[in-house]
Amino acid sequence: MNCKHSEKDLALYVEGDLPEAKAKEVDVHLPACTACRQVVDELSGSQALFKSIRQETVSVAELADLRVRVMERVAVQRPKLLWGRWVYALAGAAFVVVIMVGVLAREGHRDEKSLNVVELAPPPPSAQAVVPPAKGESQNPVKVNVKHRARKKVIQPKVYAEPPTPMMVKLQTDDPNIVIYWLFDQNGGS
């Protein structure tokens, strides 16, 4: 075809799919162009035949057969689907519970740790404390930042924080009415 209108345009034109402006151009062009008219006639004929497929439709019996098959499968599928949705819901809930338990356990552990620190920490210090000088050192008192000392205390074992328990030795004499108790502290002093 030597026309400015391609066969593709004409294939759209026959079914009204060409934009309006272009369709008007074809309307004007067709009476003067035998080749384009022939293409349009052929396309109109083939399209009319092709669209006759519309008239062929499936039978009522086939539709009924399809419906029965679909609804049978739906009846089987439905409980699975519902159960499937419950499984997902339960799995989700279980996951949330596990996460919450984990978070709570961790928080509880943190609280326990912070309680230990409170137990071990010295009473709230003043901004600075005075430490007496050791032997051989200058008689001038040394100012120490208490914050550093408090931190060191936190890592000390718990045993140092508790008061020493006194030991007791019980001596039984020949006379059952006389019992001697000997108490002494664990540092060796009695």
Partner: peptide, 17 residues
């Protein structure tokens, strides 16, 4: 879509011819 349907219509025309 316009390109697909125009090509298809031309092919159908050719096949039927």
């Amino acid at each position: 879509v316009r390109s697909q349907i125009s090509t298809a219509r031309l092919k159908i025309r050719k096949a039927l011819k």
